[in-house]
Measured scan of single mutants.
Amino acid sequence: MKVTIEENEETGKFTIKVKTEDGEEKTIEIPKENLEEILAKLPPNVEII
């Protein structure tokens, strides 16, 4: 699983794009305050880009 994290400076939010092993892609946008909480919940086999 690969996770790409991009900061949107205009909105102050982060866009998180997840690509699973089977090629499925999902995108979510979260507030900056929630980034550490989300990262802590990721499984250890995740590659963060």
Rank of each mutant, 00 (worst) to 15 (best):
D22M: 07
D22R: 05
N45D: 10
E21H: 08
T15N: 06
F14I: 15
F14H: 15
E47Q: 12
I48Q: 02
P44Q: 08
I49S: 07
N34T: 08
E36Y: 13
P31Q: 11
I5R: 00
P31A: 13
T20Y: 15
D22G: 08
T27V: 14
K19D: 03
I49P: 03
T4W: 15
T27D: 02
T4V: 08
K19Q: 14
I5V: 08
I30F: 09
G12V: 00
L42K: 01
N45A: 05
T11W: 02
K19A: 08
F14S: 15
E29L: 10
N8K: 03
E29N: 06
E24M: 11
V18W: 15
V3P: 01
E9R: 12
P31T: 14
P31D: 15
I38F: 15
E21T: 10
E9F: 12
A40H: 05
P31S: 15
F14V: 15
I49F: 06
K2W: 13
T15R: 10
D22C: 12
M1D: 03
G23Y: 02
E7M: 13
E6I: 14
E37P: 03
E37N: 07
P43Y: 12
E37C: 12
E33R: 06
L42H: 01
T20E: 04
F14L: 15
E33S: 08
I30C: 14
N8C: 07
N45P: 05
T4C: 14
G23F: 03
P44V: 10
E10L: 12
I30V: 13
K13I: 14
V46W: 11
E10D: 11
I16S: 00
G23T: 02
V3H: 01
L35A: 02
E33K: 06
E36T: 08
I30W: 04
E36G: 09
E24V: 12
E29P: 02
K26N: 08
P44F: 11
I5A: 01
E25K: 02
N45H: 09
P44Y: 11
T27Y: 13
T11F: 03
I16D: 11
E47T: 12
N34H: 14
F14Q: 13
M1S: 05
E25M: 09
T15Q: 09
E47D: 06
V3A: 03
K13A: 08
T27I: 13
V3M: 03
A40E: 06
N8A: 04
G23S: 03
K26I: 15
T15C: 07
E47M: 10
N45I: 05
G12E: 04
V46K: 03
T11Y: 03
K41L: 13
T20S: 09
F14K: 14
I48K: 03
V46N: 02
K19V: 15
F14N: 14
G23R: 01
I5N: 01
D22E: 07
T15E: 14
K19T: 14
V46P: 03
P43G: 15
P44A: 09
K32G: 09
V46E: 02
K32P: 08
I28D: 01
K2L: 09
E21D: 10
I38D: 00
E24C: 15
E10F: 13
P43R: 08
I48S: 03
F14M: 15
E25R: 02
I49A: 05
G23V: 01
D22T: 09
E25F: 09
E6S: 10
E24K: 11
G12L: 03
E6G: 03
E24T: 12
L35M: 05
L35Q: 00
I38P: 00
I28S: 03
I5H: 01
T4L: 08
E10Q: 10
V3T: 02
V46F: 08
E10T: 09
F14P: 13
I38Y: 15
I48R: 04
I28H: 04
V3W: 05
E29A: 04
E37F: 07
V18M: 12
K2M: 10
E6K: 05
I49L: 08
T15S: 06
V18H: 01
V46M: 05
K26G: 04
E24R: 10
E7P: 05
E37T: 07
E33D: 08
T15F: 06
V18T: 05
K19H: 11
A40N: 07
T20D: 08
K26Q: 11
E10V: 11
E9N: 10
I49M: 08
E24W: 12
V18P: 00
A40V: 04
K17T: 15
K26V: 14
E36N: 11
N45W: 14
K2F: 09
L35D: 00
E21I: 12
F14A: 15
G12S: 02
M1A: 08
I28G: 01
N8H: 06
E47P: 04
L42G: 00
M1I: 13
T4Y: 14
E37K: 08
P31E: 14
I38S: 03
K2P: 02
T4P: 01
N34L: 15
V3K: 01
T15V: 14
K32F: 10
N8M: 03
G23E: 03
E6F: 13
K32R: 12
N34K: 14
E24D: 08
E29C: 12
I30Y: 03
E37L: 09
P43A: 08
E7H: 12
L35S: 01
T15K: 09
E25L: 06
N45C: 12
E21V: 12
T20R: 04
E33W: 10
E37R: 08
G23K: 02
K32N: 04
L39V: 03
I38H: 06
L42D: 00
A40W: 02
K2Y: 11
I49T: 07
G12D: 07
E29V: 14
T27E: 06
L39A: 00
E47R: 09
V18E: 01
E6H: 09
K19R: 10
K41F: 09
E47W: 03
L39G: 00
E37V: 07
E7V: 13
V46D: 02
K13E: 11
E33F: 08
L39C: 05
K2T: 13
E29M: 08
M1P: 08
E7A: 09
F14E: 13
G12Y: 02
E47C: 12
I48N: 02
K17I: 15
I28F: 14
L39W: 03
E36H: 11
V18I: 15
P31K: 09
V18Y: 14
E24A: 08
K2V: 14
P44C: 10
P44E: 08
I30L: 04
K19P: 02
E6V: 12
I49Q: 07
L35N: 00
E9M: 10
L35P: 00
I49V: 10
K13Y: 13
E21N: 09
T11D: 14
I49D: 04
V3S: 01
E25P: 02
I28Y: 15
V18L: 11
E10A: 10
K19M: 14
I5E: 01
K26F: 15
I38E: 11
E10K: 11
D22K: 06
I30T: 04
E10I: 11
T27M: 09
K13Q: 12
M1R: 03
